[in-house]
Design a protein around this nucleic acid. Structure first.
Lengths: 218, 218
DNA sequence: GTATTGTATATTGTATCCAATTTTAGAATC
DNA sequence: GATTCTAAAATTGGATACAATATACAATAC
């Protein structure tokens, strides 16, 4: 085969493209809590009928990013501080276990990639990138755990609190602290200390939760 | 208000009814791994068009109960023993923490209800009920935790391994052992020993996982 | 006989249309 | 002027019609 081929059956459907676009808009904060999502408007914007739009909205609802009521339509879901706190606790339960299981299988390449994320994270000037780089960093380290289901659940949880995470990173110390802690986690991984990495990860998460709560109250 | 009223705006849509029916069929084992789910067939069976059927299939896919490919259709998802094991570990992470947080808020009514589940569980002769009663028992105890998100994730996880759970309960010792351990958990809750309840729950789950793995290999 | 290509059928994805329900604006009443 | 009823507009849920793709099988070439 002389042709540079690829699996075109993997082409995204209209519904998938719309889902991704709206999800991104919510995570970026372009769509905020309570914003109504009219099927007709979205369909016009994407130049499609309402059918794939409905499909996208259904998926968004399953992800918890929007809530919808019969005959009333969908709005961007809100997340109270209490709910966000619960999701932080969910993370604090999952992530230490994931990294503990990942450390024994971490290749030098993985740690290299994680370190690169760290570096890019420290260097990035656009606050909009911080959230993405942060998530990529953690995801890279977690991949060798083999805990696909855990990571899937974690990913959904991260989507849910994404706006809060970005807010937390925007806090004056949030960004520096995260970077410092990331480096410590990478160090623990490099020296194969699984339990240490797990502890640091747990503190990393609970620390972010705490600083967010403190900021949100005032 | 003398009338037994309910929120009729909460009436289920056709899609929801279809979702519930197919979900139940999968959990009961009436639909097994790889079984194709044709939109047209399902639509005919429920006397609706394919639109609500597609909606139901989307939800089932998000729940991980089916997998679907563009233009190829959906089939009932399979779950390897490895994947099932991971979900047991997911449970072993979540449930102890949930019950630990629930114990301090457990009312006598809750414990009564849980004990009733236990009793019904021990008395039920139809193996088909065991799985349901088992889940109801745990759900009852977990409710006071206030960890709605955790419980939502747990519920999806339980759906995913439901057939395995039923198989495990069918093992000669599975049912008796579960019942014995349930009673111990209730006891710990009654005496307010949150950590003990958590430990027992963890062992309850890991024990089930282990007995299932042992059975499945041979 | 085997491999390739064309064709028919089945199935899913999307568009368009109709029905059910909610929301809104205005008229009627007090 | 405020409130309640009413009708129309807006919006979503579902049905039908059509387009895109996959699968199975016949037709053809070698």
């Amino acid at each position: 085969m002389k042709i540079q081929a690829y699996d075109i059956s993997r082409q995204a459907s209209a519904a998938t493209l719309i889902f991704d676009a709206i999800r991104q808009a919510i995570l970026n904060g372009d769509l905020t809590q309570g914003e109504p999502l009219r099927q007709e408007d979205i369909a016009r914007a994407f130049n499609v009928s309402r059918v794939p739009v409905r499909e996208a909205l259904l998926k968004l609802e399953q992800h918890g990013l929007i809530t919808s009521q019969r005959y009333k339509g969908a709005v961007v879901a809100g997340l109270s501080l209490e709910e966000a706190n619960e999701i932080f606790e969910f993370r604090a339960l999952l992530e230490p276990e994931i990294i503990r299981r990942a450390v024994p299988h971490m290749s030098p390449e993985i740690m290299e990639a994680a370190a690169n994320c760290c570096e890019a994270f420290g260097r990035a000037d656009d606050p909009m990138q911080w959230g993405d780089l942060n998530r990529r960093f953690h995801k890279t380290l977690y991949a060798p755990s083999g805990l696909a289901y855990h990571m899937e659940m974690l990913d959904k949880a991260m989507d849910r609190i994404d706006p809060y995470l970005r807010a937390q990173l925007l806090l004056s110390e949030g960004m520096q602290r995260a970077n410092r802690e990331h480096l410590m986690i990478v160090d623990a991984c490099k020296s194969g200390k699984a339990d240490t990495a797990a502890d640091l990860t747990r503190q990393h998460i609970l620390g972010a939760q705490e600083s967010l709560s403190r900021y949100w109250k005032k």
